[in-house]
Simulated assay, not measured.
Amino acid sequence: MAQQIPVAFILWLLGGLEWVIWGVAVRVSVSLIGHWAVGHYAHRQGHQGWIVEGLPVQGYNLPWLGLLTFGENWHGNHHAFPHSARLGVEAGQFDPGYLFIRGLEKLGLVHDIQLPQSKPMRAGLTRIS
């Protein structure tokens, strides 16, 4: 949590307490709720494009959580391709997290971005419709 202190200090200087509340407290709360929602719902229900035989828990895709989770809502795809930076692997799956990573690549801040085809398919992975 200490990493929020410099952010809070800068926001305090720029706009006072209101900026700190919105820029730290609200932002962190929304992120944590999104993370919890994916962890809770994405292992129970939703669209399933892939099954990984032998996994005790399967992942499901939750399109309605897309913007809140920055693309982690494609959790079934994450189970299928855990190495991939791109989680929106099917047509129409918006993945803002991957777009952000690509932006960082263009700035020279990241490299060697892994995609689903970067590694062999994992054992037991089966595509379902």
Score class of each variant (00 low, 15 high):
His83Phe: 06
Gly34Leu: 04
Ala2Trp: 10
Ile10Gln: 09
Glu105Arg: 15
Arg44Phe: 08
Ser118Lys: 10
Arg127Pro: 02
His111Ala: 09
Ile33Asp: 03
Gly92Thr: 11
Gly92Tyr: 11
Leu68Lys: 06
Glu90Asn: 11
Leu55Ile: 02
His40Asp: 03
Leu109Trp: 15
His111Tyr: 08
Arg44Leu: 14
Leu68Cys: 07
Gly34Cys: 07
Trp36Tyr: 12
Pro56Cys: 06
Ile113Thr: 08
Lys119Gln: 13
Val20Asp: 03
Gln114Thr: 09
Phe9Leu: 13
Ala91Ser: 05
Gly15Gln: 08
Val28Gly: 02
His111Ile: 00
Tyr98Leu: 11
Thr69Glu: 11
Val57Thr: 11
Tyr98Ser: 11
Val28Leu: 15
Met121His: 10
Trp22Val: 14
Pro63Tyr: 06
Leu104His: 11
Ile101Val: 15
Val89Leu: 01
Arg27Ala: 09
Ile21Thr: 04
Lys119Ile: 00
Phe70Ala: 04
Trp36Lys: 02
Glu90Val: 05
Asp95Glu: 03
Trp50Phe: 15
Leu13Cys: 12
Arg122Gly: 13
Val89Gln: 07
Trp12Met: 15
Tyr60Pro: 00
Phe81Ser: 05
Trp64His: 14
Asp95Thr: 03
Val24Asn: 12
Ile128Cys: 05
Trp36His: 10
Gly71Met: 00
Phe94Arg: 00
Ile10Val: 15
Trp12Ile: 00
Pro120Lys: 15
Gly16Gln: 08
Gln114Gly: 02
Leu55Arg: 15
Thr126Glu: 14
His35Pro: 00
Pro6Leu: 06
